[in-house]
């Protein structure tokens, strides 16, 4: 598992805002955010839907600041218009941290099966470049994602599998 303190410290250096809808896969990271709220230079904004989170992040990016949006991959089904008619259309760079549900460890949760199967195809169809976050190479994967985000001035995604950001 990636150390929550190290991960949040990395986010703090690259973003002023973090916004999203939770997934169990982010539990540790979200607990860390809540517990260290007062000393962090990273403003955490709750959202009711994933496209709303992208809307809030877009407002932040329109202001010349940086935002990262977290969501479960079920929420990927909710953000199609926020991607194509807002963040991509207006060239608003942001990182989407998406939990990769529906793989082997989720066999008792059939609600994730279908999105799990098409998750990467959906990102490809929307032309969102993505990286799969690994425990050993997460910093270089995040740096690659950030570099692409800046070059394209558009959203990029990081997929988070079970056990990577929470036990």
């Amino acid at each position: 598992m990636i150390d929550s303190a190290a991960f949040i410290s990395f986010l703090e250096k690259n973003f002023q805002f973090i916004c999203g809808v939770p997934c169990t896969y982010f539990k540790k990271m979200l607990i860390f955010l809540a517990e260290h709220k007062s000393e962090l230079q990273l403003q955490h904004i709750l959202a009711t839907r994933e496209d709303e989170a992208m809307g809030i992040a877009s407002g932040v990016v329109f202001s010349g600041k940086q935002a990262i949006v977290y969501m479960q991959n079920s929420g990927l089904g909710n953000v199609g218009d926020a991607l194509t008619s807002l963040a991509q259309l207006y060239k608003l760079p942001m990182v989407l941290l998406i939990s990769y549900r529906g793989l082997e460890s989720d066999r008792s949760f059939p609600e994730h099966d279908i999105m799990g199967e098409v998750n990467e195809a959906v990102l490809k169809a929307f032309n969102v470049p993505y990286w799969i976050l690994s425990e050993s190479g997460w910093e270089s994967e995040m740096n690659l994602a950030l570099k692409e985000m800046k070059n394209s001035s558009s959203p990029v995604a990081l997929l988070v599998k079970d056990g990577v950001l929470s036990e």
Partner: peptide
Amino acid sequence: LPVAVGLGLAL
């Protein structure tokens, strides 16, 4: 999404 974008801008 206008209210969401407005909230991001306001914050």
